[in-house]
């Protein structure tokens, strides 16, 4: 009787620790391995834990054990298919961005990117001499007609059913054709061994976590499918204090920045959303809301930017961005559609 009880508890505990992994059923170490359960002697001290079903359960302390690295619970095959029934989409509201770069630092931190590498870039844009400048954060566009996927010779970068374009760093041969093919300059290359802590470097690689990055392979924004699997938002979305980024599912027709939730089609219709370089036919999954009725002036973004020696903060109205236009070889891109 006692023994049966133990194994039941053990099952619960492992179920907790391995989390969703077991539900998806792919882990190599199963919860039913009996050896350790027999070793542990109940101490009588109980701990309350919350199960994945939201149930509060009580477990003997003796059965708690640290799990060093739960292997990412999805197989490469599942990662290549994607999350069923979803079509992920992002909306970036340019009227709210003031170049705080919190999105970028969160993304860099959570993906353990090599110093200097950015998957998410914030551009100072000005379409023509007399048009208004604005800040444009740019993630991977997760195109529905991805030029990068077309040119990859080994299927290392692929398009999933849920719309996400991912890279399999275990397969990438490092030819960098995808970088040449991407018109959004979204891809970065690991020119050297990425600077990682030992713990991160020893993690098991997964295309959905994109961690750890590998020398000689290409990396880019992955729309954080590992967060989405957990029912959470991508890191850039949660990190932005101004609610610039909205993430959601086109099939459900809903996007959210965590604080506000909109019907995707309403938002795009009411605010005249658009996509970048529509004429190229890449069909991005990232939509932009135009920088009208802005929450911040463009110049405020210049102040929050890391101090660059070439910028002189002279208060002469609009002259500031013209100044940095002069100092940069080509600081402001031309909108090309």
């Amino acid at each position: 009787m006692q023994k049966k009880d133990t194994s039941r508890r053990y099952f619960l505990l492992n179920g907790l620790l391995a989390g969703a992994g077991l539900a998806a059923g792919c882990s190599g170490k199963t919860a039913f391995t009996p050896d350790r359960a027999e070793e542990a002697v109940p101490s009588g001290e109980k701990v309350k834990l919350l199960s994945i079903d939201g149930e509060v359960i009580e477990v003997d302390k003796a059965f708690l054990k640290p799990v060093p690295d739960i292997p990412y619970p999805f197989s490469n095959r599942e990662e290549r298919v994607g999350i069923q029934g979803k079509k992920f989409v992002m909306v970036i509201d340019l009227s709210r961005c003031k170049n705080l770069k919190k999105c970028q630092s969160a993304c860099n931190h959570m993906h353990h990117l090599h110093p200097g590498q950015n998957w998410l870039k914030i551009y100072a844009m000005q379409d023509a001499e007399h048009t208004a400048p604005y800040w444009q954060p740019a993630t991977c566009m997760h195109c529905d007609e991805p030029p990068c996927v077309k040119v990859c010779p080994v299927d290392a970068t692929f398009k999933r059913q849920d719309g996400i374009v991912l890279i399999d760093s275990d397969r990438c041969v490092g030819c960098r054709f995808c970088m040449a093919a991407c018109p959004y300059s979204t891809r970065v290359f690991n020119w050297e061994e990425p600077a990682l802590t030992e713990e991160v470097a020893s993690r098991e690689y997964s295309c959905e976590t994109s961690v750890p990055q590998k020398k000689g392979t290409v990396g880019k924004c992955d729309f954080c499918p590992d967060m989405v699997r957990k029912g959470e938002l991508p890191h850039c979305v949660t990190a932005c204090p101004n609610g610039v980024f909205f993430f959601g599912d086109m099939n459900e027709d809903v996007v959210t920045n965590g604080a506000e939730t909109f019907r995707f089609s309403d938002l795009i219709r009411d605010k005249a959303g658009y996509r970048l370089m529509e004429d190229l036919g890449t069909k991005p999954s990232v939509y932009y809301l135009p920088p009208v009725n802005r929450n911040f002036k463009f110049e405020e973004g210049l102040k929050t930017e890391e101090p660059k020696p070439t910028y002189k903060t002279v208060d002469r109205g609009n002259s500031e961005y013209l100044r940095c236009k002069k100092n940069h070889p080509r600081p402001f891109a031309e909108k090309i559609w």
């Binding site: 077309k150 040119v151 990859c152 010779p153 080994v154 299927d155 397969r171 041969v173 490092g174 030819c175």
Partner: peptide, 26 residues
């Protein structure tokens, strides 16, 4: 020499996708 991962050259034959101009070149 230009490849970041020359030791994975064999991937071109294992996972090769014919729609890539690199495969045509090979």
């Amino acid at each position: 020499v230009d490849m970041g991962r020359p030791e994975r050259l064999v991937n071109l034959f294992i996972y090769g996708r014919i729609q890539s101009p690199i495969m045509w070149d090979v």
